[in-house]
């Protein structure tokens, strides 16, 4: 539909929110039009190719996000996206992202964390975060397969002594030894890739108590 271009202010803060290669374009409504019946149209561009492309599911929408994961699934390419706002017969000029490079910019989601306790130890088992997949039945790709130098930062907090420490590991298991028995410990893990800073997604904090010290338990009897 034709509209008077520039009759509306542009959408703002247009950016790709990318986690494990799920790439969602987000933006804010034009400043003065909060609440008005504004609709949006999105286009994207593959750097080095010839023309802007449309995504039919993101034409004339009233939500302020558009999932472009499929369109930007080749993480070795670089992309742009742009959005324009429309309201009645007016529309804004396009608002454009910076060049988006999924391989460099995707955030690495947290690993799954399983804890098992001993008297003076806690065993931590991690499952690497999975890359976004188009269909649930697609085969799973772990982010570690894309980033061989992916590491984990494990933070441990002793709730009794209020002491906290962390260590960086590359494999998927870690045994914390020489802990205090009958003590509540909280563990949080984040995956990261050495290199330019990326936003980090820590796992949920999980707290477990080490078992009672068997030796002192026997003495008591």
């Amino acid at each position: 539909a034709t509209c008077v271009s520039g009759g509306l202010p542009q959408p703002t803060n247009i950016t790709f929110i990318s986690i494990n290669m799920q790439n969602i374009l987000r933006w804010n409504p034009p400043a003065e039009l909060q609440g008005a019946e504004v609709t949006y149209t999105v286009q994207y561009f593959i750097y080095g190719q010839k023309k802007w492309l449309s995504k039919p599911e993101c034409r004339n929408i009233n939500r302020t996000y558009c999932d472009l994961s499929v369109e930007t699934s080749d993480y070795e390419h670089q992309y742009y996206a742009k959005v324009k706002a429309m309201w009645e017969t007016n529309c804004s000029r396009w608002a454009e992202t910076t060049r988006f490079y999924p391989f460099l910019e995707t955030q690495i989601g947290p690993p799954e964390v399983a804890l098992t306790t001993g008297e003076k130890s806690i065993s931590i088992t991690l499952t690497a975060p999975e890359k976004w997949k188009r269909n649930p039945e697609d085969s799973t790709v772990f982010m570690q397969q894309i980033y061989p130098n992916l590491k984990y930062n494990v933070s441990v907090y002793n709730t009794k002594s209020k002491r906290m420490w962390s260590q960086s590991i590359t494999n998927h298991t870690l045994v914390l030894s020489w802990l205090e028995p009958s003590t509540l410990y909280c563990v949080q893990v984040e995956a990261f890739i050495p290199g330019p800073p990326r936003l980090i997604q820590p796992s949920h904090k999980q707290c477990v108590s080490t078992l009672e010290d068997q030796a002192s338990a026997l003495k008591v009897r």
């Binding site: 080095g48 190719q49 023309k51 742009y80 060049r99």
Partner: peptide, 12 residues
């Protein structure tokens, strides 16, 4: 970002 923003030939 600042260098790439100056590139006006994104189809190349």
């Amino acid at each position: 970002d600042s260098v790439q923003a100056r590139d006006e030939n994104i189809d190349m």
